[in-house]
Computed example of a mutant assay.
Amino acid sequence: MSAEQSAAPPERLIDHLLELRSRLLKAVAGWLLVLLALLPFANKLYGWLAKPLLDKLPAGGQLIAIDVAAPFFTPLKLALVVAMVLSAPWALYQLWSFVAPGLYQREKRLARPLLVSAVLLFYIGCAFAYFLVLPTVFGFLAKTTPTGVAMMTDITHYLDFVLVIFLAFGLSFELPVALVVAVALGAVTPSQLREWRGYAVVVIFIIAAILTPPDILSQLLLALPMMALYELGIVAGGWVKAKNSPVADA
Rank of each mutant, 00 (worst) to 15 (best):
S172F: 02
G30F: 09
L224Y: 01
A208W: 04
G238R: 04
I206C: 01
I66P: 08
G233S: 07
F72S: 02
A42N: 10
L92V: 12
F205K: 06
L13H: 07
E11N: 08
V137L: 10
A50S: 12
L229H: 00
P10V: 07
L33I: 14
T145C: 14
L141I: 00
P71M: 08
Q62T: 13
F173N: 00
S2P: 10
S245A: 06
A70D: 03
L220T: 03
K56M: 13
S218T: 02
L32N: 09
I207Q: 04
P213F: 09
E107G: 13
A209I: 01
P135W: 08
A236R: 08
L171K: 03
M152S: 14
L54M: 14
L35S: 06
A184R: 13
L141Q: 00
A8F: 03
L49D: 07
D55K: 08
V149G: 04
P213T: 02
M151A: 15
S117P: 14
G60T: 06
A127V: 12
W90V: 13
K243D: 08
W239I: 00
V133C: 02
P71V: 06
L95D: 02
L86T: 13
R112Q: 10
G139C: 09
A37I: 10
N244V: 03
L18F: 10
R109N: 12
